[in-house]
Design a protein around this nucleic acid. Structure first.
Lengths: 219, 219
DNA sequence: ATAAACTAAACAAACGTTTGATTTATTCAA
DNA sequence: TTGAATAAATCAAACGTTTGTTTAGTTTAT
C-alpha cells in the first residue's frame, strides 16, 4: 500500500500550491517557470526552493495535498447499507462528475502526467495508481454486490465501464468550449453552463450504466 | 471552412516530424528541446529552424501532416448506402478505435494541446476544432439517418455520445498499463495486448451504443 | 538572542535561434 | 561531358534569454 507523506503545509505554502496548480493546468509543468509562479503568488522566487526544495517537490506536494482530499468519498458511498446497488452506481456517477468538474485544474494536471511517457517522479505515479485503483475497486465492489443480489448482469467488464465513466467526464471537461459552441450556450455564464452540463452528463451516464449493468428496468 | 496549408515536406523534414512527434508525445512540447529532436533525428540543431522556421512552426507542420491523414475516413463510411445505420455506427466505432490506437503519439499530443489553457497557435486550434467538428457531424449524420428510418430513439445527445466514444477510447489508451496490470496481461507482447484491448473495447462500445441509440435488439 | 521568513543578486546550465563558413547538388553554357 | 556558377544543405560556434537553484545578507517573529 501507499505511504502518504504526512507533511503539513502552512498558509504560504498552500498559497504557492494553489497558484502552481492553476499555472501547471494552463501551461503544463515544463511550460510554467518558477518565476511565473513567484510573480502570480507575489513572493520571491527563492521561496519555492526554500519551502519545497525544488520545482519537482512542489508538484509532488500538490499531488499529495489534492490526493488525500479525494480519497475519502468512495468509502462512505459503498458502506451505506440503505442504498440498492443501482442507487450506489448513480451516486458514484454524480460523485465522479462533481469531483472531476470541481477540481478541473488538478485533474488537468493529472491527465497531463498520465500522458507523460517517462514518469516525472515515483511519488506522483504511485499516487495516480492509488487513485485509479480506488476508483476501480469502488465500482467493482458495487457491481459485485448487484450481481450477488441478482439485479446486475454477470458479463460486466468493470475496468472498461470505469473507463467509460471517467473517460466521458474527462472528454466533456476538456472539450467544454466546443460543447458550448455547438449547443449554442455561449450566452450562459460559466456557472450556469457547468450546471447544465453536469445535469446532462449525469443523465447520459446513468442511462448508459443502467442499460449496461442492469438486466431490465429496475428501481 | 478551414484552409489547409498545402505545403509539401521532403524526406528529411518528414523524418524530423516523426522524431518530434515521438518526443512531444513522451515529454510534451515544452519538455522537448530542439537539441533532443536534433540528436534523435541525427541532424544539426539549426536544421529545424532552417526547414520549419521555428519550434512552433514544427509542431504546426506536424499537425498539418497528421490532420489530413485522418479526415478522409468518415466520409466513405457515411456515403455507403449498403449499410444500415446501426452497421454504420459499429464501423464508426471500430474506425475510431483503429485511428486513435494506431496514432497514439499524435493523439497524445492533441490531447495535451486540448488541455492547454492558452492556445499555442491559431493554426493548431483550428485544426483540432475541424477534426472534432467532422467527428461529431459524422456521428450526427448517421444517428439522424437511423431516426428517420424509425430504428433509433429520438432523444439522443450526439455530442455526449461522441464524448463517450472518444473519451472511453482515450481513457483506455492513457491507462493501458493499468489495464494490463489489473487484468494480469503482462505476459502478452504489446501487439497481442493491443489486439485483445481493441476487441474488448469494440464489444464494450458497441454494446453501449446499441443500448443507447436503438429501440430494441435489431439486426 | 535565536530562529524563521524573506529578499536581491548571482550562478551555471539549458534554451531557441542566428551567423558565417563549408560541403554537397543542381544548373547550364561551352 | 565537362567545368565553372549558382543554389541547397549542413555544420560548429556563438548569440542573448530564460531556466532552476543557491548564496549571502536583511527583516521579522519568537
Amino acid at each position: 500500500m501507499l505511504i502518504v507523506n504526512k507533511m503539513e503545509y502552512n498558509a504560504k505554502q498552500l498559497q504557492i500550491i494553489n497558484v502552481a496548480e492553476r499555472l501547471f493546468a494552463g501551461k503544463g509543468f515544463s511550460g510554467t517557470s518558477i518565476r511565473d509562479i513567484a510573480h502570480e503568488a507575489d513572493i520571491n522566487v527563492s521561496m519555492i526552493s526554500y519551502y519545497f526544495g525544488s520545482k519537482e517537490k512542489l508538484i509532488e506536494a500538490l499531488f499529495e495535498v489534492r490526493s488525500v482530499e479525494s480519497t475519502t468519498r468512495l468509502e462512505t458511498i459503498i458502506a451505506n447499507d440503505d442504498l440498492t446497488p443501482i442507487q450506489k452506481v448513480f451516486i458514484l456517477i454524480d460523485s465522479a462528475i462533481d469531483r472531476l468538474m470541481g477540481n478541473q485544474s488538478f485533474h488537468n494536471i493529472m491527465l497531463r502526467e498520465q500522458l507523460s511517457g517517462e514518469d516525472r517522479t515515483q511519488v506522483i505515479s504511485d499516487l495516480i495508481f492509488d487513485l485509479k485503483l480506488k476508483n476501480w475497486k469502488g465500482l467493482d465492489t458495487i457491481i459485485k454486490e448487484g450481481q450477488n443480489n441478482g439485479h446486475f448482469r454477470e458479463d460486466i467488464d468493470v475496468l472498461l465501464l470505469s473507463a467509460t465513466l471517467y473517460g466521458t467526464v474527462n472528454q466533456v471537461i476538456t472539450t467544454q468550449s466546443f460543447f458550448r459552441k455547438i449547443n449554442n450556450l455561449e450566452h450562459l455564464t460559466q456557472e450556469e453552463f457547468e450546471k447544465d452540463l453536469k445535469l446532462k452528463l449525469s443523465k447520459h451516464l446513468k442511462s448508459i450504466f443502467k442499460a449496461t449493468v442492469a438486466y431490465e428496468t429496475i428501481e
